[in-house]
Design a protein around this nucleic acid. Structure first.
Lengths: 97, 97
DNA sequence: TAAAAGTGCTTTGAAAAACAAAGTTAATTT
DNA sequence: AAATTAACTTTGTTTTTCAAAGCACTTTTA
């Protein structure tokens, strides 16, 4: 029986789902790439990212590429676990039919 | 490539996901059963149900069992299509890893 | 038969979340 | 010097979530 309380509230939004599933396959993904791939405004992306950061599901790396600033994000071990178990719960819920 | 804009906003919440996946397998499901299975308050359940009703993803049937009122819900053809395609989009998104 | 309880809501209202637009800092290219 | 880019933050609006209370109606119980 799939139970909805096993789904993680942090992953309910499409934006979060998108961010996390990108980070499941890409080791470091940078801000600009997210913005383009997910077609988000700065404010929207930044707030979702900082939400996931606060939960420690992703980490940030700031550096310079040449002389330009570059900010990238990586999924944490915790983030991976939580996302994976969210997916499992989703599948359980949906595979009841 | 899974694109987040193919996910249906109407199905983002855990409650909606729960309602819809129950209705994918149960032909008619009644109010009280939803309330118990999903562990929701009346207000919460009713508002999600009326949202799905407004979108015509579910229909209502009111009748008497004995002399008691009984309200049940059924998924519509549209609801089934939309939910299915939401699931497909979800799977596409998540199967990119 | 009066009071309590149940069903299925609607209304109210508070809190949280989503989101866009504009502003910001610091550097960079033109 | 002016315009552009990166990566945000701030502000403010709209939407969503959700619980609590109220309500109409019926049924059960004392």
């Amino acid at each position: 029986m799939g139970r909805i309380d096993q789904l993680n509230k942090a992953f309910e939004s499409r934006v979060r789902l998108g961010i996390m599933s990108i980070l499941m396959v890409n080791d470091w993904m940078d801000y600009k790439a997210f913005k383009e791939q997910l077609d988000l405004t700065d404010g929207n992306l930044a707030s979702h990212i900082s939400g996931l950061e606060k939960l420690e599901y992703i980490t940030v790396r700031k550096r310079f590429i040449g002389k330009k600033t570059n900010t990238s994000y990586k999924i944490t071990a915790l983030g991976k676990r939580e996302f994976q178990s969210h997916i499992n719960a989703l599948e359980k819920l949906l595979n009841s039919f």
